[in-house]
Amino acid sequence: MAGAKEIRTKIKSVKNTQKITRAMEKVAISKMRRAQVRMTEARPYAEKIRRTIAHLSQANTEITHPFMAERPVKRIGVLVVSTDRGLCGGLNTNLFRALTRSIREWRDQGLDVEYAVIGSKGLGFFRRVGGKVVAQNSQLGDKPHLDQLLGSIKVLTDAYREGRIDRLYLASTQFVNTMTQRPGVRQVLPVEVDANAVKLADNWDYIYEPNATELLDTVLQRYVESQVYQAVVENVASEQSARMVAMKAATDNAGKIINGLQLAYNKARQASITKELAEIVGGAAAV
């Protein structure tokens, strides 16, 4: 019965694992719903500020804010949004793969890159592959708040203002739906204006109070912040749905393993009974 006993212990341990994965799946489902709500709530602000910027780009201003001006690119800043925890399928791996592709391209063009990282998985990635990390934020929890992100954002926008970087990218996972999350690297600065924005009348300008430079600065800073915030809430929603899918698959796989082991256990039990019977019969015949 030795084989059978081993199998029984194994079944028990797989069952325990299955319990854990099932619980994680349930937790991820409920967290995902809330994360999706937060994501949709953040959308109007991002849309409206994009619209304001589209208007701004059409205004006849005498000043051009550095955030809106293209300049020769020598150095690049990238803000990487990753998760804090693992067990969420290929979410971070896919993001890092997309990021590595971009990094290789930039390297081929001879550009310097520096990073700001949100989430401990991203930090782990840069610890492994190396890279100049200038700012870092992690343990944001399930309800990330803008306040927590401001520091990292400011490091990069200041670098942009001072000319230490000439372009700012955002590497993050976009939430498409529960089954699909798309990793991508998007340009944030200089601001790319939406080409299909409503055309306003020609030759006008805003009345700026108190003054144009300061206001543009505030608007564009808020714009970057809203883009990052949007990316972070989307990342949380993606993380939860990826975890839900991964844990569902794990639970199903555990079920399959248990079935296989159960079959093996039954066979082993049967074999040992047959063997015992044969021994008894053999013994009786010998007497």
């Binding site: 300008d205 805003y206 009345i207 700026y208 109070e209 108190p210 206001l215 608007v219």
Partner: peptide, 15 residues
């Protein structure tokens, strides 16, 4: 200071 905005106000940007 407080501003009042009626329809067809001139473009304005302020904090």
């Amino acid at each position: 200071g407080e501003v009042g905005i009626a329809p067809r106000h001139a473009p304005l940007l302020t904090r």
